[in-house]
């Protein structure tokens, strides 16, 4: 119970919520506006995170340029996924997108000399002989921490610094995205979500609209990867399993697929679920070992997804009417 009232716990929850909220924002524009069911979203986060790690460690780039390259590469991957498979109908695309992300993960897993393979970014060969990655993204966190020192009179934690970076961005991205969703561009996309033929018969290049959405969503996936790599510093292939995509989906359907601002609340709920199954120590959680807690987390996420789809498919903030008209 103690952890529950500690600010440190809630700060961790918020940091995680910001990162996965941005991740989920990518799915929101893809599905909530364009009706695209992307189940390989984790691939974008993996590509961006790993690009940063490899460029910083192996090629000694500055973190900023590496982050930019990571996001661009995620966008590029989204374009590649779209150009190859976006003409497929919904369920086929969903399956293809999973395969796409799994190919990315297997490549990371089996290309030891670039990505560090199973050992993760710790094993990326560096010109200095050892991986000196963590200190580079830490520069940002330390900078924040130093600025906070006079205010809180103590050294700010890593998580707190992260919250102060990621939340303004999360807010900014949500604001931008909700602006974008009020344009006529988004209106055409909403039409394609229901029926391709109508917008096509009115002169709209449906494929172009879809591809653009997929790329924008992938950029958010890539941005989430940037924050992810700052927060955790070490990346390993098992951080980018298929299930991570469904973390994003859980946040999205909890908020309601068309409710972009609902992501704030849903992301915090996810952060809480994640943090609680990791740190909270009251009964009956205290009976579980750390790996058992990890299963519990997976189980709860599965449960939330199933319950939502059965009991409240429109999510916390969605309109029932939109679902009925579907």
């Amino acid at each position: 119970m103690e952890a529950f009232i500690q600010p440190g716990f809630w700060i961790f929850v918020l940091a995680l919520a910001g990162i996965y909220g941005i991740f989920s924002l990518g799915l929101q524009i893809q599905y909530g506006v364009g009706g695209i069911m992307n189940f390989g979203h984790v691939g974008m986060m993996a590509v961006s995170g790993y690009t940063i790690a490899v460029l910083v460690i192996k090629y000694e780039w500055s973190f900023w340029w590496a982050a930019l390259a990571g996001v661009i590469l995620a966008a590029f991957l989204g374009a590649l996924l779209g150009l190859t498979t976006l003409r497929l109908s919904g369920d086929y695309f969903a399956i293809a997108s999973i395969a796409f992300a799994e190919i990315v993960r297997y490549w990371i897993l089996n290309t030891d000399n670039v990505t560090g393979g199973t050992q993760g970014t710790l094993a990326i060969p560096s010109p200095n002989g050892f991986a000196s990655y963590t200190d580079k993204p830490d520069v940002i966190l330390t900078w924040i921490s130093d600025r906070l020192y006079p205010i809180i009179g103590d050294e700010a934690s890593r998580d707190l610094s992260m919250v102060l970076i990621v939340w303004p961005f999360f807010g900014l991205f949500i604001w931008l995205s909700s602006r974008l969703q009020k344009t006529s561009w988004a209106r055409v996309l909403r039409a394609t979500r229901e029926d391709d033929d109508v917008p096509r018969s009115l002169g709209k290049n449906v494929f172009r609209f879809r591809l653009q959405t997929l790329i924008i969503g992938s950029v958010f996936g890539g941005l989430a990867g940037v924050f992810w790599s700052v927060q955790f510093a070490l990346l390993a292939p098992e951080d980018f399993l298929r299930i991570v995509t469904f973390y994003g989906w859980m946040i999205l359907i909890l908020a309601g697929a068309t409710r972009v601002k609902g992501l704030f609340v849903a992301a915090i709920f996810f952060g809480f679920l994640y943090g609680a199954t990791r740190f909270l120590e009251f009964w009956p959680l205290s009976l579980l070992s750390s790996p058992e807690r990890a299963y519990l987390r997976v189980f709860l996420i599965g449960l939330v997804i199933v319950l939502l789809m059965v009991k409240r498919p429109q999510g916390l903030f969605g309109k029932r009417q939109e679902m009925i008209l579907e």
Binding site: Y31, M37, F39, G90, D91, A94, I243, F246, W249, I253, Y295, L296, V298, F299, I301, G302, L303, V304, I305, V306, M309, V310, P313
Partner: peptide, 17 residues
């Protein structure tokens, strides 16, 4: 379609633990 996909995935996520 999405609901069916997600529920099937949710079942998988519950079954595994």
């Amino acid at each position: 379609t999405l609901a069916l996909f997600l529920v099937a995935t949710g079942v998988a996520l519950m079954l595994r633990p």
